[in-house]
Nucleic acid binder design. Sequence first.
DNA 1: AGTGCCGGGTC
DNA 2: GACCCGGCACT
Length: 391
Amino acid sequence: MYHPSAPEVVEDPRGLDCRRTGRTSDMEKEHGRSVCLLEQKRKVVSSSIDVPHARKSEEEADMDKVTAAMVLTSLSTSPLVRSPPVRTSECSNGSWKEGGFTPSSHSSSGYWSWSAPSDQSNPSTPSPPLSADCFKPFRMPSVGGPADDGIDEADSSSLLFDEPIPRKRKNSMKVMFKCLWKNCGKVLSTAAGIQRHIRTTHLGRNCDSECSDGEEDFYYTEIKLNTDSVAEGLSSLSPVSPSVLAPPPPLAPPESSRTKSESNGTPLSRSAPSTLYLVHADHAYQATTPVTIPSSNSFTPNGSNSFSISWQSPPVTFTGTSASPTHSRNQGFVEQRAQTIAVLSSPPRATTSLRKSRGEGKKCRKVYGMDNRDMWCTACRWKKACQRFVD
DNA sequence: AGTGCCGGGTC
DNA sequence: GACCCGGCACT
């Protein structure tokens, strides 16, 4: 688990200028990238904090800061936490806007108050349309739809947008990015591509990535095509990225298949609730023995209503291992999964290992040597447990 | 590679 | 049961 070396706090509301300043020297590209990413994330969080809401009291505001800081620390390192899943039930009535938000992997962070301001902080954000069709299984559009701008895009803007996430991925994982905009399931192979797609197609911005404020992040998610048969085999979720290969299998109900995965990690789970259902299904593979938090109430830490989290029966599920979900980066995830697998598949063969550990004491063989084998105890001679120098 | 010894084979 | 040894775990 890693914590950001510098737990930055929210003070810097719009400090996402890595793009603005176009100061990306080659040397800084790498660094810049991560910084940008961080900044983007931060923006998302900070926006909900720094933009004081009328109904908030001072204490509440302070509280927000504190919690935001906490959240940021986890966010900065684990992208998947970025956008915890949102219960579809909320999208229909718009409750999610009222601070409804999905808890991060930290159970304790349930008080992450993604209150209204966070979603609305960005004036230009046309919250993706929500409606009764929230529950509609996401339709899978031209999957193969060769991203018109997919790869090419990467070249031009990957420097800025390429998320580090994929880098951490195992090679067995093919990462794709899917647009979560309602009724749009476009899948592109690069983050940059999908971002551009969203920016131009849905956000109606024709400007270059330069003028992006990162909002696109909210509207796409990443999906993984897993080729790791082993891991996959164990995950009770058969569908391998159904979103890409086939329609979500019925057996993957949103709740149970939900997983904490980086994919949901994209903020758009929040802003594009209508697609959450899909997201869940899409990432079914990520759900390894998912544990669904049964909670059915809003999570209100401190009993303060200000943090009203309206998520009911949160879709939040995380793999059984108590491994802190925060570090849900793929790697961690994989590790977790491996653990789970190990547990599940551990053969009843432990008996073999009952073999008593070799004794430390000297044995006949060592004492007398091979030359004096006749001096060995019979057991040693017979290659049995030494009886003379019993441990 | 060396050591300890389990499991199993042969007489 | 005495004896032997293949093979594995452990160092």
